[in-house]
C-alpha cells in the first residue's frame, strides 16, 4: 500500500480545499525573510503584514493570475464549521510580478487562529483572460475555493503552498 509523500496530500490540503493538480508555475511566498514552505510553522505575529508573493514560470506572455488565501480550519480544526475563511483575494496579477500589480478584491486579513493548529493555504489560479465583474464575497466565512474556481472558469490551481500557525501563548504574570 503506497502512501503519498506529497506535502499537500499529507497535510490534507488536497481534499479539504482543492483537488489534485499538476503544478505548472513557481510561487514563492515570503513573510519578511521567512519563506513559506508546505507544512512549516509561522507565528501569527510574523504574519501581520501581507506577504511578498513572487510568481514565476515558463509561460508568461499576457498570463493573468488569481491568488486566494484561505483558512480551512476556522474556527477550530476539530469543528471547522466556518470552513473556508478567506483572508485575501487578488485577481488579474500579471505573470512574473506580484499581487501589488493585481486587483485586490478582498483586503489582506492577518491570521489569528483562536484554538488549535490552523492551515493557511495560498492557491494560485491561471485566468483565461481579464476578470470583469468579480463580486467580492459578502462575508469571509464559508467561502469555497472549488466553487469560486468553477464559477469564474479558473479550473484547477497552477500552484499552491500552505503553512501552519497557532495562537501564541501570552506572557503570564504571577
Amino acid at each position: 500500500m503506497a502512501r503519498s509523500t506529497d506535502p499537500l496530500v499529507v497535510g490534507r490540503v488536497i481534499g479539504d480545499v482543492i483537488d489534485m493538480f499538476v503544478p505548472s508555475v513557481d510561487m514563492g511566498v515570503y513573510y519578511g525573510s521567512k519563506q513559506v514552505t508546505n507544512g512549516c510553522e509561522i507565528k501569527p505575529s510574523l504574519t501581520v503584514n501581507r506577504p511578498n508573493v513572487q510568481i514565476s514560470g515558463r509561460y508568461f506572455n499576457d498570463s493573468l493570475y488569481t491568488l486566494v488565501m484561505i483558512d480551512p480550519d476556522a474556527p477550530s480544526p476539530s469543528e471547522p464549521n466556518l470552513r473556508e475563511w478567506i483572508h485575501w483575494l487578488v485577481t488579474d496579477i500579471p505573470g512574473a510580478t506580484d499581487p501589488t500589480h493585481g486587483r485586490e478584491i478582498l483586503p489582506y486579513m492577518a491570521p489569528r487562529p483562536p484554538i488549535g493548529i490552523h492551515r493557511y493555504v495560498f492557491a494560485l489560479f491561471k485566468q483565461a483572460g481579464p476578470m470583469v465583474m468579480v463580486i467580492p464575497p459578502q462575508q469571509r466565512n464559508n467561502f469555497s475555493t472549488r466553487a469560486f474556481g468553477a464559477h469564474y472558469g479558473l479550473g484547477l490551481p497552477v500552484a499552491c503552498v500552505y503553512f501552519n500557525a497557532q495562537k501564541e501563548p501570552g506572557t503570564r504574570k504571577r
Binding site: P77, I115, G116, I117
Partner: peptide, 21 residues
C-alpha cells in the same frame, strides 16, 4: 495508518487542548 488505530478518539481535540502549551 490512521485507519488501524484501535481507540475511538478525535486526535484534533487533543492537539487543540495542548495548543496553548
Amino acid at each position: 495508518d490512521s485507519t488501524g488505530i484501535g481507540l475511538n478518539i478525535n486526535e484534533l481535540l487533543v492537539i487543540e487542548y495542548f495548543s496553548r502549551r
